[in-house]
Computed example of a mutant assay.
Amino acid sequence: MAHVQYSITNIYNQSPIERLLYISSASYGKDWISMLHSHSFTELFYVIDGNGYFCTENEEISIQKDSLIIINPNVKHTEKSSTEKALTYIVLGIDNLRFEFKNPTSTSFQSYNFEEYRNEILPILQTMLSEVKQKKKNYEQICQHYFMVFLLKMLRITEEEFSFSSSKDVPTECEAIKEYIDTHYQETITLDTLTNVSHLNKFYLTHIFSKAYGISPINYLLERRILHSKELLKNSDFSITQIAHVTGFSSSNYFSQSFKKYTGTTPKGYRQKYNIKRK
């Protein structure tokens, strides 16, 4: 009998620094408003079908089926679809991760053609989507593990054209404030609340947080609420008023105004885009 054992003990010397925030799928429709926006986290954008353009403030590049675009934090960007063949794509949001490109044409984003590896990459993303839609026991941990596989596959396919690092060196005080917002964003939070929690002067608090994450603490709070509301609009039967309440907005009107300002569409329009029937 032959017996071969392969050691993988080196993996225990490595600890993941990144965290999957969300995975979503979308099709570019006529009602979609393309507008520049940014996030305090990294996004990975994989084109399932169609073609169009990926745009930043200074650049516009063609994208098509099997394009993979890596967008680092705080980069203003948007996508535009062609009229002939609309874009269909999957997007991942990842916290505490920045890509360091070894031969960059841009430090803010990079685009790769994964056509040759579609059958290797796409099933991973589709499995993650299936997990978040079904929400069975431990689905979040399962998605996080699939995400790690996806990252390592990317690294192998691109022959290590990039490396991973945490977003940046962040002061401990900022990490504590961010963690508090991530945990309590559904509650009533003001700048005074964060001042009391951190024991920092509100002006100093805003300064160091904005410097660390490229976004003010109050705008980061809004971003977290909008992110949660998107998932509820797609995957729940909650009314607009209920969603506003459970995501921490003071009123449905303020929620609708904030949502449109951030996404370019109303909560109702965003929900209809995903063909969810409401009572």
Rank of each mutant, 00 (worst) to 15 (best):
A2L: 12
H3Y: 09
Q5A: 12
Y6V: 15
I8K: 11
I8M: 09
N10V: 05
I17G: 13
E18P: 06
E18F: 09
L20W: 09
L21V: 00
S24V: 13
A26K: 08
A26F: 10
A26I: 08
S27T: 12
Y28P: 07
W32V: 15
I33S: 06
L36C: 07
S38R: 14
S40W: 11
L44N: 04
I48E: 06
F54S: 04
E57Y: 07
I61N: 01
S62P: 08
L68I: 12
K76P: 03
T78E: 08
T83S: 14
K85W: 01
Y89N: 10
V91I: 14
G93T: 03
D95F: 03
R98S: 10
N103W: 03
P104M: 09
T105P: 05
T107C: 11
S111D: 13
Y112I: 11
Y117V: 11
Y117M: 09
L122C: 07
I124N: 11
T127R: 12
T127L: 10
K133M: 07
K136D: 08
C143M: 13
L152R: 09
L152G: 04
E159R: 10
E159V: 10
F162I: 07
S163G: 00
S166K: 12
E175Q: 12
E179P: 00
T190E: 09
N196C: 00
N201C: 12
N201M: 07
F203V: 14
L205W: 03
F209Y: 04
K211P: 01
Y213H: 03
L221G: 02
L221V: 02
I226R: 04
L227I: 09
S229G: 05
E231Y: 06
L232G: 01
N235S: 07
S236V: 02
T241V: 10
A244W: 02
H245F: 11
F249S: 04
S250D: 06
Y254R: 08
S256G: 05
Q257G: 01
Q257I: 13
S258C: 00
K260N: 05
T263H: 05
T265W: 04
K273Y: 11
K273H: 13
N275E: 14
